[in-house]
Design a protein around this nucleic acid. Sequence first.
DNA 1: GACACATTTCAAGTTCCCTTGAGATTGGGG
DNA 2: CCCCAATCTCAAGGGAACTTGAAATGTGTC
Lengths: 157, 157
Amino acid sequence: MDLAQLLSIGQVAERTGVATSALRYYEAEGLISSVRTDGGQRRFRRDTLRRVAFVRVAQRVGLSLEEIREALDRLPSGKAPDKADWARLSKAWRPLIEERIATLQRLRDELDSCIGCGCLSLKRCSLYNPGDGARRLGSGPRYLLGDDPSSVGGPLG
Amino acid sequence: MDLAQLLSIGQVAERTGVATSALRYYEAEGLISSVRTDGGQRRFRRDTLRRVAFVRVAQRVGLSLEEIREALDRLPSGKAPDKADWARLSKAWRPLIEERIATLQRLRDELDSCIGCGCLSLKRCSLYNPGDGARRLGSGPRYLLGDDPSSVGGPLG
DNA sequence: GACACATTTCAAGTTCCCTTGAGATTGGGG
DNA sequence: CCCCAATCTCAAGGGAACTTGAAATGTGTC
């Protein structure tokens, strides 16, 4: 472990564009790790940059930090991951992204037919009772729209 | 205003599948409104059901309650909105949804090329420096990934 | 060795979208 | 008229992903 090629938190922040506070938070959450200098300051291995990049991209895909942590845990521990390791992780997102695209397309199409009928009816309209895996689109609690559909009654007019 | 055809908060909750606490919250936020009985209980007009449905669908599109409130404010005040009014509002979402779909498709395609090169490089990879309006995908604070891109440095290796 | 800037920890604050709980009051069926 | 379920208000909690602030300590440079 040549200390010289390790990075300070400020260097990681500058090169990833992620605030030092966020990096400390990521470490606390187990997404990245560091060694300490004699004085107690963090020093990160260079592959931490890629880890952080992975985290940010994964967030764009819509994953929570918890989910991302689980994904990262599957990397070979100890030794720095190679291209194939990263590729394997990234590949796992594809179905997720596809699913989200499909969900939005359904939403769009159903919205069109709702514009057609002008309804937004709770009973008829599948917009309101999504059977699909909408997951966390937009913020808010995860049980959003996930309620018992049988409780939803008749038309709105 | 025939009190008889107004709905109690429990009735609205049951027919929309939205908790009474959420409905009270929506009212506090100006998304819906009610009249009060002599005893002080809320009574909602029937078109509140459609308003609530609109809110939930808009959330699925990814809008914040604030944005939804602004949209609802454009409805004719006082008189109950007709089909055309609702259609006009819903129509406004289309470009938004299209944009989100396009964003995800870009993300997917770029992810493919990143898998190809195995990079996830901060410099080369547009995944990491999104120029698009990714808005709020997934939950979390809104300044997510909204940092100054110029601060992002070189390759990760 | 001094100086400035970076870094440390820890607690608390922020935003969004609600939920939960306590304690008091109301409304409608028998 | 009575009673219990429904509703009321208000304050506080909760989780995700951080940020901010304070007070102390480390590090690199001249």
